[in-house]
Design a protein around this nucleic acid. Structure first.
Lengths: 338, 338
DNA sequence: GAGATTTATGAAAACATTTGCATAACTATT
DNA sequence: AATAGTTATGCAAATGTTTTCATAAATCTC
């Protein structure tokens, strides 16, 4: 009976209990300097006693910011996105915002629905992954004034500001490094590229570099496999059956991990018998045996940069979000040394 | 001039444009069967034309659910939590809710602040990780009626309903399996246990099993190391310098991965020269070379179960959330065979 | 085709806040 | 002690919805 818990304690309950007006209570929260220290103390004590918790929904209605930022990712449980989510979350949290997170499992129609949902929640800002989205998603976002950024990829000409890496450049970088040693017999292990613009661009970049070097990869030397260590390990085994290639370039580090294991299983030593390189530089990549040569897609930097730019756009420190290219960076390690 | 975009389109703008009352527009959304098909069509067209998006904040104010569920984790970028977040997110999404996610970096005071923030956002349900929380956090949650669950751990006697695994049982399971082969010289590689009740319980379980088997582990055979493959690899190297142990039990799979690499580097073969086992069964654990014997902490199952129970508690299908023990399960693989 | 039902719509109150404006209560100035 | 200037508080309107109740329109019944 101490707290009349049948009627949730709202600001008027606090006002009544503290014998002040509603306005004064509200001011204690929003403009504490406008209220006399003594009253403030009393109100604060009452708030504590009643266990009152402010209702952001009621504030949001006034055009006041909702204090949330939306992030929609394809999936959370790939390490690389987890890193992005973490750094994004940390950064917006520092700025006082809360993260509204959703994943669409690479389904762009679902992404549209999630985008709508986020807007219904009146997120103050929104971030999506990749440059490729349903037309209705673009239409929806262009109609709104909610600051929005596309993360992960960079391209100079995109419909909404993007903050990320040029994946085709990443592909080019890794391929050029691998080719520097003069290998001719190169194999490719890549993920499905149909619904994934990032993967497609990397492959395009790799192919560009190969073409420049005058190298053609036969059909049999290109393996497309689902994104998982086990799948990549199984699928790439065929490469090592008879004549192992001199080099394997992988669309990402997860696949590269599988390739390393398959090579090991086939009794081949990396980098002695062949070299392997990936793209991504996930958390564990440098701890593999041998440590993986790869091009870092700087997930953390992208997440943080995006969060900084979004929050600044929201708080008005920075009116418009500009596209930013976070450069991919080659990390030469044991699996494909210089 | 097509859409008067200076004044954001709200329900009254739609009503005016469609020449109906506000109520009718509202009903079109909430009880479409109560409005004449013709009018409904007209309103829906207007909504589309004006790009109107409902304002959940305004709905929430009416005691209508906010449609959000909060999840507060220590960190997102450990694979194991990422898996939990993913399955939790998927499940609440299916039930029409949106995820409000935050991470506190193992700081329980920060966790309290985040909990408050979630409640300010009027989440319809809330989940925290672990059973150990700041006293003020418990007080706060006990004062609210928001359905809450503690995830990850299970204990029969906790202050709030918990859905998870008995980590001490997990520790016991892995230790008993390792000891079955009669190894006497056992080493432990564990993470810091001071601010992490999960880790502490696992270690306790391991010790219990060892004690039962009459085995005492000397100080030098216990290595405490930060949660990372690289750290574990470096820190455990000392174990293999002179007399390698017959078995290494690891507090989690990340550390076990490091130990496998360290052993490999020391020229030892697992499981021939020594056996290694972990706890967790992360996504990559079965793909290691050798595949890792481990006790699965069923992250996905926990996430999903928790989400189901929370959403049911919210929608009233199930009034109270009950504690549920999701059993840990031993996976015997090459690194420590039977 | 008039009365009785049923169906569709609108007016206004309610939700939990914030804020502009008015006023009351102090301080400072002469 | 009266006036001016500050500082602190309260009243009431506003925010974008939903919902109850009342009423108007349409349909049915004989």
């Amino acid at each position: 009976m101490t707290d009349k818990n049948h009627k949730s304690t709202d600001i008027v309950a606090v006002a009544k209990a503290a014998k002040v007006s509603i306005s004064t209570v509200s001011r204690t929260f929003n403009h504490p300097n406008l209220v006399k220290p003594a009253t403030r103390k009393r109100i604060e004590a009452t708030v504590k006693r009643l266990g009152y918790i402010r209702n952001r929904a009621a504030q949001t209605i006034h055009g006041i910011r909702s204090g949330t930022i939306g992030l929609i990712v394809p999936t959370i449980d790939h390490m690389i996105f987890a890193e992005l989510v973490q750094s994004f979350s940390d950064q917006i949290d520092d700025a006082g915002f809360t993260l509204l997170l959703a994943s669409h499992g690479y389904d762009l129609n679902r992404e549209y629905e999630l985008t709508r949902k986020m807007l219904e929640h009146r997120v103050d800002g929104l971030a999506l992954i990749g440059l490729d989205h349903a037309e209705e998603t673009f239409l929806l976002l262009e109609q709104q004034t909610t600051p929005t950024a596309l993360l992960w990829n960079y391209a100079p000409d995109c419909r909404l500001p993007c903050i990320g890496t040029d994946n085709s450049l990443a592909g080019k970088l890794v391929a050029e490094h691998v080719l520097k040693k003069g290998h001719q017999d190169v194999a490719l292990v890549i993920p499905p590229t149909n619904r994934n613009d990032r993967a497609a661009q990397r492959v395009a970049g790799i192919h560009a570099a190969l073409t420049d070097a005058g190298i053609v990869i036969p059909k049999k030397r290109t393996i497309e496999t689902p994104y998982s260590v086990a799948d990549a390990k199984a699928a790439s085994a065929v490469l090592f059956e008879k004549h192992p290639p001199q080099a394997v370039i992988c669309g990402n580090d997860v696949l590269a991990t599988g390739v390393l294991l398959a090579a090991q299983k086939a009794g081949l030593s990396v980098p002695r018998d062949l070299v392997v390189a990936g793209i991504g530089d996930f958390k564990g990549s440098k701890d593999l045996e041998p440590a993986l040569t790869t091009v870092r897609i700087p997930a953390r930097k992208i997440g943080k940069t995006a969060a900084v730019n979004l929050t600044q756009a929201i708080t008005g420190e920075n009116l418009k979000i500009e596209s930013i290219h976070i450069l991919p960076e080659l990390f030469v390690r044991a699996s494909c040394p210089t």
